[in-house]
């Protein structure tokens, strides 16, 4: 190396925010993906229905209470995710483990509820325009939720697997940020596809 510039005395500098920034970019990717899909949905809805005399939903009835409960479950999991982060920052392993496990259980419960609601609604793939669009948009939103769940589980294991320190809680913080984002994505999708329809 040229001797014009001094080298760093400490060797490899600490980069605590790298994962958080990357998670921010990943969230932007997911946000734009959903914008593309929901934009497509809204454009088709505008072009095909609901017009007088047409039935955009093909006679389907959205089971609102089930979808509402699913959303409430997701909101509850946000609380437990932030509880996990709060505990890990205080190096409270017992509470952090409990909160992460609860978040994962609530997340799985949410996915189960959404699947049940779609089943109850009688949504069949390939049976109509609304059905195909609903499957695609809901599928993408659920994929983001599953990704968030895996991320929070993985970072939970990583941060609590040996040390609950600053670095571990930063990783968990990035995962919790993505989980918050996933919940927002679901809320927007739910409102667009199942409330406004």
């Amino acid at each position: 190396m040229s001797d014009i510039t001094p080298t760093l005395a400490s060797g490899r500098p600490q980069r605590p925010r790298t994962q958080l920034v990357a998670t921010g970019f990943a969230s932007a990717v997911c946000a734009m993906m959903m914008a593309g899909a929901l934009g497509f949905y809204m454009a088709r809805r505008h072009a095909s229905g609901p017009h007088p005399g047409s039935d955009w939903l093909d006679g389907l009835a959205v089971p609102n209470p089930q979808f509402d409960y699913a959303l409430l479950t997701l909101v509850a999991s946000l609380v437990t995710a932030h509880w996990a982060l709060w505990a890990s920052r205080r190096r409270d392993t017992a509470h952090a483990w409990t909160a992460i496990a609860t978040t994962i259980v609530l997340g799985l419960g949410f996915i189960n509820m959404v699947m049940y609601s779609m089943n109850r609604m009688g949504l069949e793939i390939g049976s109509g325009e609304y059905q195909n669009l609903a499957f695609a948009t809901t599928g993408l939103a659920l994929a983001i939720v599953v990704l968030g769940l895996l991320y929070i589980g993985l970072m939970g294991l990583r941060s609590l697997g040996g040390s609950v320190g600053q670095r571990g809680s930063t990783s968990l913080g990035a995962a919790v940020f993505f989980w918050d984002f996933a919940a927002l994505v679901w809320a927007v999708t739910w409102y667009t596809v199942y409330v406004v329809k």
Binding site: C30, M32, M33, M34, G36, A37, L38, F40, N132, A136
Partner: peptide, 9 residues
């Protein structure tokens, strides 16, 4: 990513 959303549909 907008293309990804479109491709899904």
């Amino acid at each position: 990513p907008v293309l990804l959303g479109q491709i899904a549909i």
